[in-house]
């Protein structure tokens, strides 16, 4: 086997695993970015919502739970996640939105919300780790390497959902109103847009996206209360790297981080990858403090 072939093999496996990671990051970062763009806060319950949704999906779907099948479990989990998002917004974010220090206040309130959800999950579902069934069995060959059918679904789902989110924000009245509120809250109110309602809707959609990400992840990794913790950190990098306030930047950031992580894992191993990722990230922010497509 020639060197050319082995180089090709390296790229193929990096490409495949990078694509899977990137797609997961797209799913996770999209909701985070939507809340940041609209409300101007970081929602630290995002990771806990992923875990909660995975647990709900497991309980509804698994034979040891309600045994209603995976499809019902997924739908139920997404609805529960959206509902939780609605409640989180109502209790932990909305009451403080007028304040000057809202960014810091929201860090504290949503972090405590995250601890609350994670520990409630531990109390409700116990410490025994669980795993969701894969959406489909079997493997798929792409670009010369093999990935599981479930991972292929993640790869397809990420851009489709982004397209759906874009169409929603672009073509519906509610979507336009959400973008309007993000750009000029006062003028939106004077146009007759009910701002609090738009915040609640944006928050619930973001939570549903977090829930979906949690479900997809719950079939690859084991479900623990901390399932979303590390991904949340990556999603934060993605959103900041892409440029706060920019959806296209977030998507591009997700693919960059995904492929970067896959490359680093291949050559340096998983052990050093986190450190390298953050180092590159910090270096990048020194050069471009506003991220790829950031404003101001």
């Amino acid at each position: 086997m020639g060197t050319l072939d082995s180089i090709q093999l390296v790229f193929q496996s990096i490409f495949a695993s990078g694509l899977v990671l990137a797609s997961l990051y797209v799913l996770m970062a999209a909701g985070l970015a939507l809340v940041w763009n609209t409300l101007g806060i970081f929602n630290f319950t995002h990771g806990a919502l992923m875990a909660a949704a995975a647990y709900v999906a497991w309980t509804v779907a698994d034979p040891r739970g309600l045994a209603l099948g995976l499809a019902v479990g997924v739908v139920a989990a997404i609805l529960v996640a959206a509902l939780l998002g609605f409640i989180i917004n109502y209790l932990l974010v909305a009451p403080f939105l007028g304040q000057k220090q809202i960014v810091l206040i929201a860090v504290m309130t949503t972090l405590s919300g995250a601890f609350f959800i994670e520990n409630s999950a531990l109390l409700l579902w116990g410490p025994r780790i669980k795993q969701l069934d894969k959406f489909v069995e079997g493997n798929v060959r792409i670009a010369g390497t093999t990935i599981s059918g479930h991972e292929a679904i993640i790869i397809l789902l990420a851009p489709l959902l982004m397209l759906g989110l874009w169409a929603f924000l672009r073509f519906t009245w509610t979507g336009s109103a959400i973008r309007a509120v993000a750009q000029n809250r006062d003028f939106a109110e004077l146009s007759g847009v009910r701002v609090q309602r738009m915040y609640a809707i944006a928050f619930a959609i973001a939570a549903a996206l977090a829930g979906l990400a949690g479900i997809m992840l719950g079939a690859i990794r084991f479900i623990t209360p901390g399932l979303g913790g590390e991904p949340l950190l990556k999603a934060l990098i993605v959103v900041i790297l892409g440029g706060l306030g920019s959806m296209p930047g977030t998507v591009l950031g997700a693919y960059l981080v995904g492929f970067g992580e896959a490359t680093s894992t291949y050559f340096l191993g998983a052990y050093w990858t986190q450190a390298v990722l953050f180092l590159v990230f910090i270096g990048f922010l020194v050069l471009r403090p506003n991220g790829l497509f950031g404003k101001q």
Partner: peptide, 23 residues
């Protein structure tokens, strides 16, 4: 009330701004 300083929704088009006026 048409506020002072005509800030509008800067990243929306003229048409989108007008539609939102009729929300």
């Amino acid at each position: 009330h048409v506020p002072q300083g005509n800030t509008l929704f800067p990243d929306l088009t003229v048409q989108e701004n007008l539609w939102l006026g009729a929300f």
